[in-house]
């Protein structure tokens, strides 16, 4: 809970009036903001078919995942054994392009197609990023997949990965259940 108040203080410094509004509008804002990854910044409500554009972007990502072999267990093993540059090149150039885009968005105050200002909520540090990060890394090298590739591996025909995905969802649930008792 300590983290939460710090996050809110930080956020409040950025856009006090807007955030206050959000908090009143969303009864579940506190729960959602416990995990900054999960807060949906848009305040607009749309019909369901607007979400089809995310299917399109997801489809593109799924194609890249397969065609660049990013969902390959072998490529992940090469990465962690320093036997290939491929994965480092992909992640490095993705971050470079992503960072440049975010910089441009901030500099020119780019708005969304619906005219909303674009927001990127700051993340706050907690020990979970280290402990959870290490556990995630162990799992990543075992399965050869992080969450995105798990979905893509199933699509690529490795049906047994449904079991891995269900286990990952179970892991997510168990984390949620024990969250208050874990160091953060």
């Amino acid at each position: 809970m300590k983290n939460l108040t710090e996050t809110q203080k930080k956020n409040a410094q950025i856009q006090p009036s807007e955030l206050l509004q959000t908090r009143e509008a969303n009864a579940d804002f506190e729960v959602r903001s416990l995990d900054a990854m999960c807060v949906n910044e848009s305040r607009l409500k749309h019909k369901w078919h607007h979400d089809l554009k995310y299917v399109a972007v997801g489809t593109l990502l799924g194609i890249i995942f397969v065609k660049a072999e990013l969902i390959s267990w072998f490529r992940i093993q090469e990465m962690f054994r320093l036997q290939s540059f491929h994965m480092y090149g992909v992640i490095g150039s993705a971050v470079a392009v992503g960072a440049m885009s975010v910089w441009l968005i901030r500099k020119f105050k780019v708005k969304t197609i619906y005219g909303e200002p674009i927001e990127i909520r700051p993340k706050t540090f907690n020990k979970g990023q280290i402990i959870g990060g290490l556990l995630f890394g162990l799992g990543w090298a075992m399965t050869g997949a992080c969450p995105g590739p798990l979905y893509a591996q199933i699509g690529a025909g490795a049906t047994v990965i449904v079991a891995t995905l269900l286990s990952a969802i179970l892991g997510t649930w168990v984390y949620g259940y024990f969250r208050d008792r874990l160091p953060h």
């Binding site: 959870g132 799992g139 075992m142 995905l165 990952a168 997510t172």
Partner: peptide
């Protein structure tokens, strides 16, 4: 492995 991916990624946020 899958469990660690799910548990760890949520723990790490």
């Amino acid at each position: 492995g899958g469990f660690l991916v799910g548990f760890g990624s949520r723990y790490a946020g």
